[in-house]
Design a binder for these strands. Structure first.
Lengths: 342, 342
DNA sequence: TTGAAAGCGTTACCAA
DNA sequence: TTGGTAACGCTTTCAA
């Protein structure tokens, strides 16, 4: 049997709380002399004492675990640069603070409150929220701090959100294409991201931006791995520029264009979103909106940690923070002047 | 205050364990009538009873959390296809079984036993093990099931390992290059993977394979993001084929070659490792060793779950499993005949 | 300054 | 079939 704190206390001839104080820094009004502290540490080592983390979690109602929830996690593909960036940001915030990252399949709703708000996590980072399945309301007062990443402002009242400034981003893309002479453009998005709050928001941002320039525009919902561009082979193509929801999706477009012999950017311009290093590897190199994913994830996580560590009243009353991240356009080689005949 | 199981029991006029039985299926020799079960469920709903997961973890000494440990997690880059594949495999095994995935910064050694073997995880998946920092011995009897992913056979006696068959893989690569006429080849690896058990093993496998064909060979330890290929511009280049440790590293080589105007595969052949979809996106498309990362991760995780759920004596005595995965070579466009003058 | 005792929420054990 | 009681390991509170 494993040694408990009491075994150590007995062997050292002190009380259990003295041990707790020395080994975990927990006792409040306890003072232990240096000599005794040394003795306790020595005995603990000899007995191979190992604190029972579950007991501590239980007693303290604190796990030092932060839950990261993706919806549609099944959609992770091995060429999606988003995930590593995001996880790096989360870990960069969590690990130095002594927290571990727990990844959940989904928000397991039980009745109308999330089952994961049962104490197993000190806080929840809800990434790529999908409002079709889960009730935001059930989160707001579930008793566990929640922060949303990639949730547009206002989409979850009372819950802090961290999101790209899609409006500004799409305006920049549209302006860039407009300046190159493009007048017929489309936004290309996979059905899966279209289920997320940000997918919807980015699409709407595109539509507003396109309208502001009086463009012919369209939204194409298309499988990102197998987009069909055959319509673009004819001389009067439906659009001269495609704006993809993500770099991955843009990569699929480039591949499809290549397969059909469509010249990018000669015949067709393509824009991605995220401006990951992926964009440097494509041929032609991909023009893309830069979104500081890692920083956003780090900021969201750090904010979540403040919520975890401050009294609930503090953050509850201060109102939900909304952070919008400016996204610039990295112009590379996949966008060019509108082809003459169009 | 949140309702406890006792509150529910009292309100329903039954014992706490009857509630436990009905709501958690836990009571052993308890039988509750259907009517009473219905009443209990009703009362629980009315009181918004939510089981305290920490209390249950504590009582059961079971968290339904599996720890995934990477060493050198700082090295995750946003174009590394490895991580999503691996996580998909782990999640595919964990989630249906009702487990959550916890990701740890490192093996936090405390004394000579890992601090994470303190009950917070039911099992540990140790990925990319690094024997320079942690003692394998400390793991073997730490009381928590441990499985290693990407640990060569024999590198951790007593701990089940799941690993690519590096010897066979490297032999296939070398044979392929030999058949194309290459006689001067190099293995290119970043300093970071060279710290891992598999980095060392793969390098050794390369050396054995090259020797078996009497090749001129060399190992180049090179930063994967900024490899220097200037030596390859001269007509008598040091090698005519480079075998990279990973697809990412091969991608760096392709980029460096392009920057210097070195033709791949005309002047130089390049081989990657993993054969991820990344290989389809490069120009030229990358010849690469296919390693079934997702399946390996899934198998390792499933095996870990059996260790978690069976009595320790079962798996302790059956001896450690070692799974070697056959890796075929996906020949694409980045390898070609040895240039004439060499 | 130290120690004893109570209690966190749950579930197993044992008695009725 | 049912229910009371004790115990899991730790930390806080209160008393000495």
């Amino acid at each position: 049997m494993r040694a408990t704190i009491r075994d150590v206390a007995e062997a050292a001839g002190v009380s259990a709380m003295a041990v707790s104080k020395v080994l975990h820094g927990k006792g409040t009004n306890v003072r232990v002399s240096d000599a005794k502290a040394e003795l306790i540490r020595k005995v603990a080592r000899e007995l191979h004492y190992r604190p029972n983390q579950n007991a501590r979690n239980f007693r303290n109602q604190k796990t030092n675990l932060i839950g990261v929830v993706f919806q549609h996690f099944e959609g992770l593909t091995d060429d999606n640069p988003y995930l590593p960036q995001m996880l790096n940001g989360v870990m960069a915030a969590l690990f130095p603070a002594g927290y571990t990252m727990g990844i959940c399949p989904s928000l397991i709703l039980d009745g109308n409150a999330p089952a994961i708000a049962d104490g197993r996590f000190d806080g929840i980072l809800w990434a790529r929220p999908d409002f079709s399945a889960a009730s935001v309301d059930s989160f707001r007062y579930c008793g566990v701090p929640v922060v949303m990443l990639h949730a547009p402002t206002g989409s979850a009242e009372g819950i802090p959100t961290f999101c790209a400034n899609n409006d500004l981003a799409m305006q920049r893309v549209v302006d860039h294409l407009y300046d190159l002479g493009h007048r017929k453009v489309a936004f290309v998005i996979d059905p899966v991201p279209l289920l997320t709050a940000e997918g919807v928001a980015r699409r709407a941002a595109f539509e507003r931006a396109a309208q502001s320039r009086n463009l012919d525009f369209e939204v194409l919902v298309v499988d990102q791995t197998e987009p069909d561009l055959t319509a673009y082979k004819s001389s009067n193509r439906p659009h001269t520029a495609l704006i993809a929801y993500s770099d991955t999706q843009a990569g699929g477009l480039l591949k499809a264009a290549e397969a059909l012999g469509i010249d990018v950017p000669g015949e067709l311009s393509v824009v991605g979103f995220d401006s990951s290093t992926f964009c440097e590897r494509t041929k032609p190199r991909l023009t893309s909106v830069f979104q500081p994913v890692e920083q956003m994830a780090r900021d969201a996580t750090n904010y979540l940690l403040t919520m975890v560590n401050d009294a609930e009243s503090t953050w509850r009353e201060s109102g939900a923070v909304t952070s919008l991240y400016d996204c610039h356009l990295d112009v590379r080689e996949s966008t060019g002047p509108c082809p003459p005949s169009n």
